[in-house]
Design a protein around this nucleic acid. Structure first.
Length: 436
RNA sequence: GCGGCCAUAGCUCAGUUGGUUAGAGCACUUGAUUGUGAUUCAAGGGGUCGCGGGUUCGAAUCCCGUUGGCCGCCCCA
């Protein structure tokens, strides 16, 4: 007999696991709703070209892709952004602005597993479409922070690094670099934290060893960690585009400060978020201890909706992955205790009393109470123990003596007090006792 | 795709230089208890020792392969 197990990188969710996952989703969903974001969903399977169009041919190696029975090249979605761009682009003219949407879904990437990374994982995605100004960034960074704080995480636990790809382009352009060189330098910036000077190897292979003076200025720029430091570097250049950009920075940081979020935000030009389609501000959330991979990441992508749907629409978005996030909660002891307590446990004297109990159980459940009872005949002692283990607040005793008088006993499990109630009034009595 | 470490009950693990029927704790089921929740005690179920092959009189133990897991590299939308 062959035995089966889940595919590598895929997880089973037993009830305890699913309870934890649902708790996370519940708080994300509630938080997004309070920010006025509307939830959407879309197919898990998409045309392969949707991802090739966004990320190039190489992406296919990272996808669960195949040819379906109709000969279509398809792929399980590795991320939500192309899909949501398709949705929004198709109805852009009919949607009220700003468009604020979120989703929680499962994604699939054909990759090697690692801590905080599997082949199937969930992401919370939130995007704002149709808003070219920093109001969109304000809204999303505010949402990101609240999506983490809702679980009890504080500025001691994580922070959000805020950077700006536009500023990098303007700065490197002002230093005389062409577009290809700028991208190579940004690649080095992205890797600098991990590899130090070796990060510039890629640049050297393409364009020769980087000019030491240029490298100095790049390193100085990527080490900027405050608005004041940024202003000190940018102001002397007297570059119109950079000055305008700096004004945007002041507005955005002003907004975030007004929201009381400055303690979570760290100006950090060392973040550029890979190659990608980002066109302005980018941000990533990390644990303060620096032990985990990024918890969340996002930024502005003003060209992507147009590229994928033909309708130009500015956009900002971010995603939180469930795996690293769950690790962080666990590390900080913020995994919630599982609360699966019953409201009522019915103690049944014997098979003769069972019909009366079943009738009451059905009525109580119909009234919305969570009711448990033993399937098989059990001694009273066992039943009270079971009631206690079920976390029941009340026990209702269907005993022969009581039923003969048309009553049942309701026992408060916390103080062990008991009182008798007419059988016909059980639902009202429970509602009264539980305040429901 | 590459490298390192690991794999014994549902979970955490023990298992002698290779030696007879593979163990413990926790968890689970049942009983002590025929109308009241604790503690305790007793019993029970559950393993082809990840899988396949090899060496050997004999393998959980040694060797090879394979699958899966953890960690790192590449990548990270």
């Amino acid at each position: 007999m062959a035995t089966f197990q889940s595919l590598p990188g895929f997880r089973d969710f037993y009830p305890d696991d699913l309870a934890r996952r649902n708790h996370i989703f519940r708080l994300w969903r509630r938080t997004a709703t309070t920010f006025g974001f509307a939830e959407y969903d879309a197919p898990v399977l998409e045309p392969l070209d949707l991802y090739k169009a966004k990320s190039g041919e190489e992406i296919e190696a990272q996808l669960f892709s195949f040819t379906d029975k109709g000969g279509r090249e398809v792929a399980l979605r590795p991320e939500m952004t192309p899909t949501v761009c398709r949705l929004v682009g198709a109805k852009a003219n009919a949607l009220k602005r700003p468009i604020k949407w979120f989703s929680i879904g499962e994604f699939y990437r054909y990759e090697r597993m690692q801590k905080g990374r599997g082949r199937a994982f969930f992401q919370f995605n939130a995007d704002v479409f149709g808003e070219p100004g920093i109001e969109a960034e304000t809204e999303l960074i505010g949402l990101l922070v609240q999506c983490l704080c809702a679980f009890g995480l504080t500025e001691e636990d994580y922070f959000v690094r805020l950077s700006d790809r536009n500023l990098w382009f303007y700065y490197l352009g002002a230093l005389g670099l062409d577009d290809a060189r700028i991208r190579a330098v940004l690649g080095a910036v992205d890797r600098y934290e991990k590899y130090g000077d070796d990060a510039f190897k890629g640049y050297a292979e393409q364009f020769g060893t980087i000019d030491p003076a240029l490298k100095e200025r790049v390193l100085a720029f990527l080490q900027i960690r405050s608005l004041a430091a940024l202003e000190a570097v940018v102001a002397p250049l007297q570059d119109g585009r950079m000055s305008a950009r700096l004004a945007e920075w002041r507005k955005l940081l002003g907004n975030l400060t007004a929201m009381g979020l400055e303690r979570f935000i760290s100006v950090d030009l060392g973040v550029v978020r890979g190659l990608a389609y980002y066109t302005g501000f980018v941000f990533e959330a990390f644990d303060r201890k620096g032990e985990l991979r990024a918890i969340a990441g996002g930024g502005r992508y003003d060209d992507l909706v147009g590229k994928l749907s033909g309708t130009q629409l500015p956009a900002v978005g971010f995603a939180i992955g469930d795996m690293t996030f769950a690790l962080l909660l666990e590390q900080r002891g913020l995994t919630p205790p599982l609360v699966t307590a019953a409201d009522v446990f019915c103690v049944i004297g014997g098979e003769g009393e069972r019909p009366a109990a079943l009738g009451a159980i059905q009525s109580l459940r119909a009234a919305g109470f969570r009711v448990e009872y033993p399937f098989k005949e059990l001694a009273f002692g066992k039943q009270f123990k079971a009631a206690s283990e079920a976390g029941a607040k009340l026990a209702i005793i269907f005993g022969g003596d009581e039923l003969a008088r048309g009553v049942v006993k309701i026992r408060d499990m916390s103080d062990r007090s008991e009182r008798e109630v007419a059988q016909a009034e059980v639902v009202d009595a429970v509602r009264d006792a539980l305040g429901g």
